[in-house]
């Protein structure tokens, strides 16, 4: 198994109406651990050790990105799970949902150029001590696709210690504050990022650099 995955750890990947990348996230998780989809209308997390809130346009992102999904039955359980210290990863729309739910600091605003952009970007690992980056080296660059229209991270009072990933110089197309690509909560068990590590887990489709996020979680899941 690559990156020291562990079948005793189980990922739960949420599925909302309008999720787009949930199957991709499921495939990525399945490379390092067990994984199962969790339906938005069910409160049961089915014994998952770690939760992935995937990308897409949950509930069409009507009203505001992530604003409706945050109130779904499954999210009630995820919020409780996070408060109990469970590992939660939010990718793109999932990051937006976790911000809306108050599990992560800050908010995601429309990109400075107000267009959807899909581009392979380099991310610098700022903090390699987290449950989501323990398989990375400090300062390591990860090549991962980013694709979004509402990804400008904004958190004026952010504790700088919470920054986990930053866009490498010249790679931040969305105008995020301090070029921040991913942040964690103060407790360290919830992490969100706009780029898509689940789309960088296979050399065939361009990069395997995203796999370390999932293997880090699997590793941390065993440690817990």
């Amino acid at each position: 198994m690559p990156h020291g995955g562990d079948r005793s750890v189980k990922f739960g990947v949420l599925q909302f109406p309008g999720s787009c990348d949930e199957r991709d996230a499921l495939l990525a998780c399945a490379k390092v651990a067990d994984a199962e989809l969790l339906w938005h209308g069910d409160r049961d997390l089915k014994g998952a050790d770690a939760i992935v809130v995937p990308g897409g346009f949950s509930y069409g992102d009507y009203l505001r990105a992530g604003a409706i999904a945050r109130f779904s039955p499954v999210m009630e359980s995820v919020i409780e799970f996070a408060h109990d210290g469970g590992l939660v990863l939010g990718i793109c729309n999932g990051f937006q949902v976790l911000c809306e739910a108050g599990l992560l600091p800050g908010a995601l605003l429309p990109n400075v150029e107000r267009r959807f952009v899909c581009r392979q970007v380099d991310l610098e690992v700022v903090d390699a001590e987290t449950a989501f980056t323990n398989r990375c080296a400090p300062g390591e660059l990860l090549s991962i696709p980013a694709k979004h229209q509402t990804g400008r991270f904004y958190a004026p009072d952010l504790d700088p210690d919470l920054v986990v990933l930053r866009y490498a110089t010249g790679h931040c197309f969305n105008g995020s504050q301090d070029e921040i690509a991913g942040v964690r909560n103060a407790a360290g068990n919830v992490f969100g990022l706009m780029p898509h590590p689940e789309h960088a887990v296979d050399p065939l489709t361009g990069s395997v650099d995203g796999l370390s996020i999932f293997s880090s979680m699997a590793h941390a899941g065993v440690a817990v």
Partner: peptide, 24 residues
């Protein structure tokens, strides 16, 4: 670049990488 070319985890060749798109 305004289109998501990678969703689905099948895109082996994205635009401008090859003369045709390639999907696994």
């Amino acid at each position: 670049e305004q289109y998501d070319s990678v969703v689905g985890s099948r895109t082996v060749r994205r635009p401008e990488q090859a003369d045709a798109a390639v999907l696994a």
